[in-house]
């Protein structure tokens, strides 16, 4: 957090490096555009979906589970920010800071437990449930 330390490290190499990387990527893309052959295949204008003719729009709707992941990420990644700021200064903060973060962690864990129990962490179908349902279905047959 010392402002003077930042200034000791020259930043221009980073910028130069970045510039080189950008131009390199540009060159690669440009080159392949220039060098690449031209032509049109029979099925090139259709999406490749394993050889099966594409049906309908690709803008399909997704399980809200994905949004759940996004939310989980947001929650926990933002928590990381706080832990980060503690981690860098935790020696100065000592046990006092430790207690603070411990409380914070407890909250995190409680949230985690809650989400776990709510099924937010269950991705995809629950195999055991399906199996149980399947067995129930099978029973009358016997």
């Amino acid at each position: 957090m010392d402002a003077s330390e930042v200034n000791n490290v020259p930043l221009w190499p980073l910028l130069v490096y970045g510039a080189i990387v950008l131009s390199l990527v540009g060159v690669i893309l440009g080159l392949s555009y220039v060098l690449g052959q031209r032509g049109k295949g029979r099925a090139m204008t259709e999406p490749y979906e394993g050889g099966i003719v594409s049906e309908g729009s690709a803008r399909i709707r997704f399980s809200s589970q994905f949004y759940m992941v996004a939310m989980l990420f947001v929650i926990f990644d933002v928590e990381t920010v706080f832990i980060l700021s503690w981690a860098i200064a935790f020696r100065e903060l000592g046990w006092y800071g430790y207690a603070g973060v411990a409380i914070f962690m407890v909250m995190l864990v409680v949230v985690l437990v809650y989400e776990w129990r709510m099924g937010a962490l269950d991705f995809g179908p629950d195999g055991k449930k399906i199996l149980a349902a399947y067995k129930r279905m099978q029973k009358p047959a016997f």
């Binding site: 957090m1 949004y67 996004a70 947001v74 929650i75 933002v78």
Partner: peptide, 27 residues
């Protein structure tokens, strides 16, 4: 002062929370 950055972290957090609720609502 570090205060400005501290506030930024708070803002970040709040924005994140807000977005997650917002996205759920939008869905």
């Amino acid at each position: 002062q570090p205060d400005g950055q501290v506030m930024f972290i708070f803002i970040l957090t709040m924005a994140a929370a807000e977005v997650s609720v917002g996205l759920a609502l939008i869905l």
